[in-house]
């Protein structure tokens, strides 16, 4: 069966738009006049706990009212227009599964509450549970499920009615490394094979880096950074050089060619390598006659990037106080 192609290009459409979006809980500011747009892809909302990720998701879904500004989903206010909610999916961070019913029963019910007729709802429930990798277990009450199985049902529940856009709040919370990998793979697969756009929040940079095409870094209720995930990781490269002898000679040779190397454990690390640098490093190794054991590039990860950003911010604050 030929897979139907979406009638419009989901990648250019603006699915989410925040306009000077502000949310205060009493004196605490969860989001402070943020403005951004999210298109049809997998977008990561990255930030530490309390950055305002969950609040942003809830505002878009209309689960809570903004203090000021606007949160639009597919051009609508989801809090006021229930029609648009028929094409959205939401996976909360907290528990949300009734324990007495089975996954099949629950998914069928959720499909119906999204507007699907019962006979379609049943088929969709079975298909979706298979998609997320839940098989025999789906007839047992969900109270007895492991965290991994519960997370799968929570994801299935967002997909059962075939949404245009799915918002996932910390989808990997509580999962072990294998479970986390599987969940991220499912998220990628959902986007790649079915063209469903996803927004996932996470405090784990690794998750976002591996899964998302775009990233929005939130901190203290403001947008810190925004762009393609690749531009975050490709801006600069770090090179590892490991030699079995003549290390100091190599450092001197590199220095003679204007390449600054730092020692890190048994290897030398050269930061911000680009273009001509590669030739100079090669020449230096030859000139120093150092027995090369390993020469490996390492892409800068979002983790480092994010840490350096926050460290800078903290440093700035410390200076301010001093």
């Amino acid at each position: 069966m030929a897979r139907r192609i979406a009638t419009y290009d989901l990648r250019v459409e603006i699915l989410l738009r925040a306009e000077k979006l502000t949310k205060r809980y009493g004196s605490v500011i969860a989001l402070d006049e943020v403005s951004f747009e999210i298109g049809g892809t997998i977008t990561g909302l990255l930030g530490p706990n309390g950055a305002g990720k969950s609040t942003a998701i809830k505002l878009f879904l209309g689960l809570t009212e903004p203090t000021s500004g606007r949160a639009e989903v597919l051009g609508q206010d989801a809090g006021r227009d229930e029609q648009v909610r028929a094409r959205l999916g939401y996976m909360p961070e907290h528990d949300c599964l009734p324990s007495a019913v089975s996954a099949t029963e629950f998914l069928t019910h959720m499909a119906e509450t999204s507007g699907l007729p019962p006979r379609h709802a049943r088929v969709r429930a079975a298909d979706t549970l298979r998609h997320v990798g839940l098989f025999e277990e789906r007839y047992r009450p969900m109270g007895g499920y492991s965290t991994g199985m519960k997370q799968r049902v929570k994801l299935a529940q967002t997909l059962v009615h075939d949404p245009v856009l799915v918002l996932l709040d910390e989808p990997t919370a509580g999962l072990d490394p294998t479970g986390r990998e599987e969940m991220l793979a499912l998220i990628r697969k959902t986007h790649r094979e079915f063209g469903i756009s996803l927004v996932m929040s996470s405090h784990l940079m690794g998750d976002v880096e591996r899964t998302c095409e775009r990233v929005l870094v939130l901190e203290n209720g403001s947008v810190l950074e925004e762009g393609e995930t690749s531009t975050f990781t490709e801006a600069s490269e770090t090179l590892y050089i490991e030699v079995t002898a003549r290390r100091s000679e190599l450092i001197a040779a590199l220095a003679a060619r204007d390449v600054k190397a730092t020692e890190e454990g048994s290897s030398l690390v050269v930061d911000s390598v680009s273009g001509e640098d590669y030739d100079r490093i090669r020449d230096a190794i030859v000139a120093a006659n150092a027995p090369l054991r390993r020469l490996a590039p390492r892409r800068r990860t979002l983790t480092e990037l994010f840490q350096s950003e926050t460290n800078d911010a903290e440093d700035a604050e410390d200076e301010g106080i001093a």
Binding site: E82, T113, G115, P117
Partner: peptide
């Protein structure tokens, strides 16, 4: 019909609010 087992797009009817209310009642 050839059955393609597995997850796919849903092209069927969407009955919106009316169906949702009935589903909550039934549940």
């Amino acid at each position: 019909q050839v059955f393609d087992l597995g997850f796919r797009r849903y092209e069927g009817q969407r009955e919106g609010r009316r169906r949702a209310v009935r589903a909550v009642h039934k549940d």
